[in-house]
Computed example of a mutant assay.
Amino acid sequence: MANTLSTSKATPLAPAMRGLRKPPRKRQGPYPLWFLLIPGIIYFIFFIVPTLASFYYSFTRWDLFTATWIGIENYQTFFQEQALVIGLRNTLIYAVLTSGLKVVLGFLLALFLTSKIIARGYLRSVIFFPVLVSAIGVGITFTILMNPETGLINVALAKIGIDGPGWLTNPSLAIISIALVDVWKGVGLATVIFIAGLVSIPGEYYEAAEVDGAGKLAVIRNIMLPLARPAIASVITLSLIGGLRSFELIWSMTKGGPGFASDVIASVIYKQYQAGFYGLSTAGSVVLFLLVTIIMVPLTRWLNRGEV
């Protein structure tokens, strides 16, 4: 009887006792949160702190020992510079031209290098090799090759009766010539990214297209381009950021010349720094940072929309 009563009393209490139990802890990831501490500290020291310091010093007139607050005077001076207007225009032209050509040529080369051809691995290495070469070395080499009088390019054109232009001395051609050299150097990386995107597409899609009688263009348009979208987004993002902040190749080939014809924002900033206007050059660096952010953040969100 006692056992029966105790059981009957315990039964209505059981749901209440279960309600008092602590909810099960959520399963954590494979690594504890304190693993993020050291990378977070490194990121804070080497990125957040210098970025905030740059914003502060852009409002000052400073040298290695002192800093005097002058407000937005540096920005006013920077935007009144004629070289800035030319540099901003050249930066946008350079970034759009180089990124567009890298996307188109990289995709075409990837199509070629994923097909059944002889020495495919060797050709992939040849295409990627310029990526490994120093930008300064490439710039010096092509400066010699593009010499209007003794350069190999114009000498070769003269052999077939064509009078070669001043690739780097003509103000109308200088920035375009450097952009073409940049494409030659960087298209290998775009090609490798596209190859990775194309070979990751399951073969069933191609088999289904073959059964349906789809042609090459239909396969590219309806299968390759949609499924290689992450690779396309990566190439556009990397090449456009590289184009907006380009400096080494331009400086090694023309130093922004002739005149201001091939100046970009980064070369204008460097010239101000060379002249001892440290606050002005810091303001230019902030302008470049904001320009890249304003262009790339919405573009990246648009490129990655709908991606799982």
Rank of each mutant, 00 (worst) to 15 (best):
S234M: 03
V211Y: 00
T150G: 10
Y273S: 13
I41P: 06
E204N: 11
T60R: 03
S200R: 04
K116I: 14
A214C: 06
I93F: 15
E210F: 08
F59W: 07
I236C: 04
T141C: 08
I236V: 12
W167K: 11
R18I: 10
L217M: 13
I93W: 11
A196N: 08
F107K: 00
F46Q: 05
G256I: 04
A275M: 13
L244K: 12
E149G: 12
P130M: 02
Y206E: 06
N154D: 03
L64T: 07
A156R: 13
I117M: 05
G256F: 02
V133P: 04
G40F: 04
I41H: 03
L109A: 01
S285H: 08
K255S: 11
N170T: 14
V199A: 05
T141F: 10
I220R: 01
A10W: 11
N90T: 04
G276S: 07
L132S: 11
E210Q: 13
L249E: 07
Y273K: 10
T7V: 15
F59Q: 03
A156W: 12
N90S: 08
K22L: 07
S172Y: 12
G213N: 08
E149V: 12
G161R: 12
L92R: 07
T150C: 06
S172A: 12
L5V: 12
P24I: 10
L13A: 11
F79R: 02
S8M: 15
I294S: 10
A218H: 08
L13Q: 09
N74R: 01
I223A: 02
L291W: 11
N74I: 03
Y31A: 08
W251L: 04
A156M: 11
F107M: 02
T77D: 04
G71N: 08
I201K: 01
V308D: 08
Y31W: 13
L33P: 10
V155Q: 15
L84V: 07
P23N: 13
W184C: 09
A119Q: 09
W62C: 13
Q82K: 14
K255V: 14
P12Y: 00
E73M: 10
L198W: 05
P165N: 11
L244G: 01
P24V: 14
S281W: 00
V103D: 00
G100A: 09
V287S: 03
I153M: 04
R229G: 08
F55R: 06
Y270P: 09
K216M: 11
A156Y: 12
L173S: 09
L33C: 15
F47E: 09
V297Y: 13
L303G: 03
F46S: 08
A67V: 07
A283C: 03
I127R: 00
G197E: 02
G276V: 14
S58K: 00
A266W: 00
Q272E: 13
R25Q: 13
V308Y: 09
A179Y: 01
K159E: 15
A208N: 05
S177H: 02
G151I: 06
M1D: 09
R18A: 14
I136S: 11
A283H: 04
S58Y: 02
L152R: 06
F128C: 00
P50C: 07
L109Y: 02
S285L: 06
K271Y: 13
V287K: 12
S285A: 15
W34L: 09
G259E: 11
G188W: 01
A233W: 09
A266M: 05
F65W: 07
I93Y: 15
L5C: 14
P202C: 05
